[in-house]
């Protein structure tokens, strides 16, 4: 994006204005995510920078909201912090229980979505697949249909089949919502997949399963893992279906946040948000590394 030598003064002015505009837009994109991090260390129960925070007075900062995440919901939060205290936190603290639920639901729904989605993507990327477009449209539709409609449908369906309030019900619903992401990422990896490799493996006497695990899988693994991460994040961030079909005691992190935002918003929400931002940075880094690896494997190099 270098400025050409023949640019007129007006064009030069416009060029720098343009760069400033772009910088502002990047600020708009990223600032709201980063702003919660310093605010979560606020010593006061406010949502804004206090005077002490602005002068970098250490007493203006504290870990109290992170501490609240641990102690909220505990039976005996003020006891001495020994083994029994930590056991109490592990078993009773509301946010820890929500995190456990979120991780269990996320792990199982990711497993279901990734296995089924990868198999389907393999089928969909074969040139001889009949009715490819309509089937693909159906499989991607959970991502397009408004979540409230899905949740409403599941509410009726689960109350009729007895799945409401069960972990199985939530896992199935979250798997459905994660499947489009798996299909999109895995089919993207399969674009330009050299099918002569599988034929070569077959001609050398490999069984279909050996071919799959030794030839296909290593090549598409980056796509499968990023698809799985997408599916996990989808489940980990999903609140509407949980609100509609889960039982009252089935709290997840997003649901707990939702309640926190709607009822009385406290900086404890910001400390959860900070933790989630750090998790998403880690996930993004993983996906980026996988994408580069996939490009290297397929011989696509950055220009």
């Amino acid at each position: 994006m270098a400025l050409p030598v023949y640019a007129s003064p007006l064009e030069r002015i416009w060029h720098y204005t343009y760069l400033v505009i772009c910088a502002l837009i990047f600020l708009f994109l990223i600032a709201p995510i980063l702003i919660v991090i310093p605010l979560s260390f606020n010593a006061e129960p406010y949502f804004t920078f206090t005077e002490k925070m602005l002068t970098f007075d250490p007493t203006g900062y504290s870990m109290r909201w992170y501490d609240l995440l641990l102690t909220f919901g505990m039976q005996n939060p003020d006891a001495v912090r020994d083994g029994a205290w930590w056991a109490d936190a592990w078993n009773n603290a509301a946010w820890i229980r929500a995190a456990k639920n979120s991780i269990i639901i996320g792990a199982f729904s990711t497993l279901v979505a990734t296995v089924l989605g990868t198999l389907a993507a393999l089928g969909l990327s074969r040139p001889e697949m009949p009715l490819r477009r309509p089937i693909m449209a159906v499989l991607i539709s959970p991502m397009i249909v408004p979540i409230i409609i899905t949740a409403t449908g599941l509410f009726f369906f689960y109350s009729a089949t007895g799945l409401s309030g069960t972990y199985v019900g939530i896992v199935l619903a979250h798997a459905t919502l994660g499947i489009p992401f798996v299909i999109i990422t895995v089919t993207a990896t399969l674009v330009g997949f050299d099918h002569s490799l599988t034929r070569a493996a077959a001609s050398l006497g490999a069984s279909p399963s050996t071919t799959f695990f030794k030839v296909i899988m290593p090549l598409i693994l980056p796509g499968v893992i990023s698809g799985a991460l997408f599916a996990f994040v989808t489940s980990f961030d999903e609140v509407v279906v949980v609100l509609f079909v889960a039982a009252h005691d089935q709290q997840t992190i997003p649901r707990q946040m939702w309640n926190g935002i709607r009822e009385q918003i406290s900086p404890a929400i910001l400390s959860v948000a900070t933790i989630l931002v750090i998790i998403s940075i880690a996930l993004l880094a993983t996906v980026e590394l996988l994408r580069r690896r996939s490009e290297r494997l397929r011989g696509v190099t950055p220009r």
Binding site: V239, L270, S280
Partner: peptide
């Protein structure tokens, strides 16, 4: 990064 960040986190930030 915004794309990967939880929707609820982004909504909270705007609040």
């Amino acid at each position: 990064l915004p794309f990967w960040t939880s929707l609820l986190v982004r909504t909270t930030s705007w609040i």
